[in-house]
Design a protein around this nucleic acid. Structure first.
Lengths: 153, 153
DNA sequence: CTGAAAGTGTAGCCGTGGCTACACTTCCGG
DNA sequence: CCGGAAGTGTAGCCACGGCTACACTTTCAG
């Protein structure tokens, strides 16, 4: 980048170059990815609880996530709105088909990210920790590259 | 696959196991990392603008980030609150020493993440895109491993 | 020197994701 | 069968990061 001092403010016909929507687009995508991240975490956790404990209750979810139960309840409401989960008052939470598919994808992606980090020499604890944040920003292309890398190495 | 049905709700002495603060801690960290991410992006961009254009104005920042100028102004206010930037009304934005150090660290980390992704076979465009989201969740341990990996390969 | 355009700042709105506080259900032990 | 504890739900608060709308500065072209 950088060449033109880019001064001046005044008149209409100042710049006229295409500028650079590229960077803006990237930031925008990263931003929206982050929005979906929460739902993904909840869906994955609910699937895990259903599989391992037979039921997923708001308080369990909250405890595992380290948030207040009210926060979990709100998130569950959002999951329902998005058609990912179902729940009846005082009964547990369940995933719809869409929710289950999401949970599975998230789970697979999480494992893949952790495995790649480990393969790169990242210590186990750090790998798990970082994967928690990283996984929500890994595109399909990157995911595919990860899989290829693990297979080849 | 479970094991324990884990039913029951009632009495006080129900569980008594250490539960699992581990996962909660991880989620919490990922959450707070995400909070710092915005500031990091702004700091990096401001440093870039200062270096390449000589000045960093709210509107330029907003355009590059793809947000409304008011949004950028608010973020700048937060940067000031955090002691990372200085700005006088209608004059540009500048980084404090702390802000510059942050920007440099962020910049280096960004490059490293992109390089690792590229080395793993991720296409250039996807690497840039994903790095934008990933970089904020890479711990020092992981960063070190990345550097080692690139050096060795 | 002046006027209008661009940039800047401020106010107010929304949705999200945290929280606490409080009311209501459920369910178990006695 | 009944009381209380744990779980659940709801309301209301806050900060954040978006946005639009509008008022005010700055700066440049005439």
């Amino acid at each position: 980048m950088g060449s033109s001092p880019a001064r001046k403010r005044g008149p209409p016909g100042t710049s006229a170059l295409p500028e650079e929507p590229t960077q803006a687009r990237r930031f925008g995508k990263a931003r929206s990815a982050q929005s979906a991240a929460l739902l993904e975490d909840y869906a994955e956790l609910i699937a895990d609880l259903l599989a391992n404990a037979g039921e997923a209750r708001p308080t369990d979810i909250a405890r595992r996530l380290g948030v207040a139960h009210a926060t979990a309840v709100k998130a569950i409401a959002r999951l329902k709105r998005e058609g990912l989960a179902t729940a009846r008052p005082y009964r547990g939470v369940f995933l719809t088909d869409a929710g289950q598919r999401l949970a599975e994808r998230v789970r697979a992606r999480h494992r893949l990210v952790v495995d790649v980090l480990r393969a790169l020499g990242v210590p186990a604890e750090a790998a798990e920790q970082d994967a928690e944040g990283i996984e929500h920003h890994v595109s399909d292309a990157t995911l595919a590259a990860f899989a290829r890398f693990l297979a080849e190495r």
